[in-house]
Nucleic acid binder design. Structure first.
Lengths: 210, 210
DNA sequence: GTGACGCCTTGATCTGGATCAAGAACGCGA
DNA sequence: TCGCGTTCTTGATCCAGATCAAGGCGTCAC
């Protein structure tokens, strides 16, 4: 049923996909590439509040105005639906609504986990946490843990509430300690994921491990 | 319909209402009082990730295990429903599901706004932001802006990603600058709300103002 | 090639908020 | 009314991470 109203679009790296305050007529699913969700303070300080990777959903049924900036940071392909037909579809198909609620709850959990990172973790722990998340989302299952960083140092800093210099220094430190191995600037291999996880500061029992 | 399955319960200040990892059999609405949602790192560092005030909802349909600690910080009255009947109700009444999605999206927006605060704001801006939020939620409409702080300095610190000493110093500074007036330790009057809002660092146009 | 630009690293210094350390002000129960 | 615990304030010092500054290293256009 979705088939009838979907369209594909591709955007080059760096494109602003949505600007905060815009009216949004399209709801999308990210098919390929990587985009960031960010918010800006009046003097220009920026905080990333979410990272969009393939399979993530963009936009919110029932809400006209976008509250965040969304920017492609690599070439991005979206699969989009016009708002109205999609909202009708939800109203008619309860379990799509259920699914949407599930996804939103997952986002909320991720946001709150990130609040702990921003409020209480050290720079070292922040970097380790980001590496673990990227390992889980980007490293092919079953193989050695290996992935390409989709983010520049500056984008990582923006996500972690740090400066790009601190990010650079901490990555250097993790490499020096043998926790990660770099191939070029963006390639990361994690020889011992548990060792990396131990550096995140997270409570490993009792909590949610995603 | 909800009438049949609801029960009221009251808890004294300081009671743990839910512990992360617990199975949760009751979904609740907070009727009176104030509670905190928090997460803990392995070495005991704590970050509050949400504040629950009257009319807020606790628990999530479809999810058995609680991901966060919830603690009463004043005497709290809950209106609770058993999970199963409530979930059946949602499945049968689509627009309750819609409403729940709306509320979850609001929570997500609040969480992301808080991520900006934690990642990028100065101590001064953090305190001002908290005061603005409490003004909006707790001050009676139409009157002078006045409310009682429902939180100790320590709880504020935990919410803002600061220490209690820094919270105390910044409140003192705001008082010295005439931005707020204190009556006792907990009573706050804001003579000029716009002046306080100007200190939050938030972008006042283009964004969501809640 | 060789600029030039974008990204990244590394070093030197500074600073906002953390940490350590007393007290002071307020309940509250006996 | 008096202790005693809790909460809050204030001061002194410290330090993780910010800021300022100077290259290094790819890569792309010409």
């Amino acid at each position: 049923m979705l088939e009838k109203i979907k369209t594909y679009q591709t955007f080059p790296a760096g494109s602003p996909l949505i600007h905060a305050g815009d009216d949004v007529e399209l709801l999308s699913s990210l098919v390929e590439g990587c985009a960031t969700i960010s918010m800006t303070l009046e003097d220009g300080r920026v905080q990333m509040v979410g990272l969009l990777l393939p399979s993530d959903f963009i936009g919110r049924p029932g809400r006209q105005v976008a509250p965040y900036d969304i920017t492609a940071i690599s070439e991005v392909t979206l699969c989009s639906f016009r708002r109205r037909p999609f909202e009708v579809l939800i109203a008619e198909t309860p379990h799509i609504g259920q699914r949407l609620l599930e996804m939103t709850l997952d986002e909320l959990d991720a946001a709150r986990e990130w609040m702990v990172l921003l409020g209480r973790k050290t720079a070292r722990e922040k970097i380790a946490s980001l590496m673990v998340i990227l390992s889980k989302r980007l490293s092919p299952r079953g193989h050695d843990v290996h992935f390409e960083l989709p983010l520049t140092r500056e984008a990582m800093a923006s996500y972690l509430g740090l400066t790009l210099e601190t990010v650079s220094r901490q990555i250097t430190a993790l490499r020096r300690d043998g926790v990660i191995v770099q191939e070029g600037r963006r390639g990361i291999t994690v020889p011992d994921l548990d060792r990396l996880i131990a550096l995140t500061g997270d409570d490993t029992d009792g909590g949610l491990l995603a």
